[in-house]
Structure formats: C-alpha cells, structure tokens
Design a protein around this nucleic acid. Structure first.
Lengths: 150, 150
DNA sequence: CTTGCCTCTACAGTCGCTGTAGACTGTATC
DNA sequence: GATACAGTCTACAGCGACTGTAGAGGCAAG
C-alpha cells in the first residue's frame, strides 16, 4: 500500500530539491518536469516523486549534461527494462567533453600564468600583459571553434 | 611620414583578423570597435589599425576575458602612460577564474569517470550511471552558483 | 483584519554571438 | 553593355539555460 502524502507547493519543492522556483517553472515549460496538478486556486501541487525527478535533473545539470541528454535520460528511466548502453554512451560523451574542456583551460592557464608573471609594473605602454594579448602569433591559429565562457 | 594605405572592406578585415563579418558588426554595435568610415555607397572601410584592434579583441576573447574587461583593456591602451596595475589585476582575476573552473571540471571528471567505469551493461533499471545521477548525497550540497556550460 | 510572504502569468533581459530575409553594390566575364 | 555572382547593407529573431520584473491574486498567523 502506498502512503499518500500531502502535496506540496512549488516553494516547498524548490527547497526540497534545492532548485529555484523560476527554474522549476522553466523546466516545466520545456517539458523536463511534466505538468503538475493544481489546487483550486491554480497553485501547482507536487509529490515526493517530483522531488526525486527534480533532484535527478539538478544533479545531471551539475554534471554538465545538456538538457537534451537529460530529457533522454528521463525518458529511459521510464523504460527500466531497456538496455543501458545509451545511458553509458551519453555519460561517456560527457566525460569526453569535460576532458576536452580541461585541456583547453589548462592551455589558457599556462598562457595567463606566463602573462601575469612577466608583468613587472610600470606603464601600460610597456606592459607585458598587453603585449601578450597583442601577440597572437601562436595558439589557436586555424581554430574555428566557438569561444566558450568559463 | 605615415604610409596611407588603401582601406579595406569588412570582408578583408574579417579575413585579416580571422573574425567573422557578423561578429565585427556586433563588436561595433556594442562599442568594442568604434564606428568606421564609410564608402560613398555606405560600406564600412577599415585600416591596418583596425586589424590590430580586432586581433587584440579576438585574442583576449580566446583567453576568456569577458567583453567588459576587454573594453577596459582597450580603454587603457589609449592611455599608454597610465599605470598597468589595472591591466595586471584583470589578468590575475582571469587566471583565478580559469583555475577555479579547472578545479570544478576536475571534480566533474572524477565523478563521471567513476560513473562510466562502474557501468557493466545490462538494463537501465540496474544501471550504475543512472544510480549515480540519482544519488545526490555528496557533491555541491550548499552550492548556489550558477551551473556553467562546458 | 491586516500583515507579510507565497504563488500566478507573461514577458524582457542575460552573454556573446549566429542566422536569416530582402535589398543593394562591386567586380569579373562574355 | 549585359549578365552573373560575390560582397555588403539593415534589422531582427534565435541559441542555451535560465534570471528578473511587474502586477495581480492567494493563504496562514497574529
């Protein structure tokens, strides 16, 4: 027998899953969260399953998975008897993406390190940092990839 | 005596600095590039100084500097006799941001590694990857930072 | 009953661009 | 000169993943 629990409003769900209210509504609008029941006055009502689902989404987001992948993962969760190869593939792609980004950032770190250590104060005109940014001789010459935020 | 060079159109500037035409116009619209001269028919005309400035912007972007910082850096370039402490501060902040991001991504890498190595195939219901995403016991508990794309 | 938080919808803004539509211009070839 | 084609123009919408705002209504405690 299932225990029927008192449903909670969006604010309680927000605290339970540590996801902002506006973000929950956004997830609903893009189909990650499904349309919840409503109270008579129109307020959204959630149960403990929603807490789990939202926590799943949050953790997946923290791991950097894009929304589309998360959609796929949730879809797969509703078919527990299907093969988990797809799940594994998504996770491995993600790991590859993280490693690639780590490589890029390590290169940035080296260049920025070189810049700041070569600066010995003084005027902008003779600043090594400025010179370094101006000198685009090396590094990412034929690179047509989009620049990503930190 | 300065050598007066034939001005170039936006397409040539684009190739010279390896920045897309639309991006150049965008930089102009947000005040990073300044309003260029125009030909009789209204086409933008650039000189070699513009190539340098645009290359500077591109390299700064590749290093991950946000637009506001780049604006400041360009501003400082036009006052070559001012102190380069501000420049150095910006670069050091950037280095700090890169290192912080490296730390975050390294943590992600470890967790994803753990996930994919623990998956031994089978059904979604028993998939360790799924279980890992569901288990949000550890990792970033009281973290209110915005999740960043890779 | 009032106070004060909670929730609702709808839409604009964030960052750093990219893509598109539709019109005009410049150049090369025939 | 005609034609073809590449280049350029403006203006605006769209991306991802949200965040913030305005203005209205709901709900529980004192």
């Amino acid at each position: 027998m299932s225990i029927i629990m008192k449903p909670m409003t969006i604010g309680r769900l927000s605290k339970a899953a540590n996801v902002k209210i506006t973000t929950i509504r956004y997830y609903e609008s893009v189909g990650l969260m499904g349309t919840p029941d409503r109270s008579e006055s129109g307020q959204r009502l959630y149960g403990s399953l929603d807490v789990e689902r939202l926590s799943f989404i949050r953790h997946a987001r923290e791991l950097g998975f894009p929304m589309d992948d998360i959609r796929t993962l949730i879809e797969l969760q509703t078919h527990p008897s299907s093969d988990c190869a797809v799940v594994n593939k998504i996770a491995q792609n993600q790991l590859g993406a993280v490693r690639k980004r780590l490589g890029q950032l390590a290169a940035l770190e080296r260049e920025l390190e070189r810049m700041v250590t070569s600066c010995e104060g003084g005027k902008v005109a003779s600043c090594q940092v400025m010179a370094s940014i101006n000198d685009h001789s090396e590094c990412s010459s034929g690179n047509h990839e989009r620049i990503k935020p930190l």
